[in-house]
């Protein structure tokens, strides 16, 4: 593996990303792993599925890398995001950041994860016993208070 930004259906190996950012000029490597959790608001999650608008997601991830470079002087960043079905406890996201000193690496890694979650078009769906749910789309639920009668049966879409 040599690409430093990867969106893949395959398992992510954090060490590969860490290796990509290690250099003799760097004294610190911070690696964040996002792993799939087994509960959401008290419900048991069976598995997760990620979907990406890949072309734009790559572009946005590259933008984040450029921002880390210009804002924090961090040159070495590698990001991997898994898509498709991901079982519980597996790694869905790897962000590896290296810098000469640790403060920049910690901060830039944290910032990278935060920015990624706001701007990169990748969506997560959680599957439960007898249900499923696109994360962050709660405001898109149709309710009886909305005056669009033809929309009121939409919950069948989620069955």
């Amino acid at each position: 593996m040599s690409e430093t930004i990867v969106i893949t259906h395959h398992e992510l190996n954090p060490e590969e990303f860490t290796d990509l950012v290690r250099r003799d000029t760097n004294g610190a490597v911070v690696t964040f792993l996002g792993t799939t959790r087994d509960t959401f608001e008290g419900r048991n999650v069976i598995r997760l599925e990620y979907e990406a608008y890949e072309e734009m997601a790559y572009r946005k991830l590259e933008e984040i890398r450029q921002e880390l470079k210009s804002e924090f002087g961090v040159e070495d960043v590698a990001i991997g995001h898994r898509i498709g079905v991901v079982d519980i406890g597996e790694i869905s996201l790897v962000v590896a950041v290296a810098s000469p000193h640790r403060s920049e690496a910690f901060y830039a890694c944290h910032e990278a994860v935060n920015r990624l979650k706001h701007s990169v078009p990748i969506w997560k769906k959680e599957f439960y016993e007898g249900g499923e749910h696109w994360v962050a789309c709660e405001d898109h639920e149709f309710t009886g208070s909305v005056e669009t009668p033809e929309t009121l049966t939409v919950s069948a879409d989620n069955a």
Binding site: Y53, E55, M56, N114, K117, H118, S119, V120, P121, I122, W123, K124, W134, V135, A136, C137, D139, H140
Partner: peptide, 12 residues
């Protein structure tokens, strides 16, 4: 134009 409708991303 390449046009895509983007549902909310996970946000955090």
């Amino acid at each position: 134009d390449e046009i895509c409708l983007i549902p909310p991303v996970s946000g955090g």
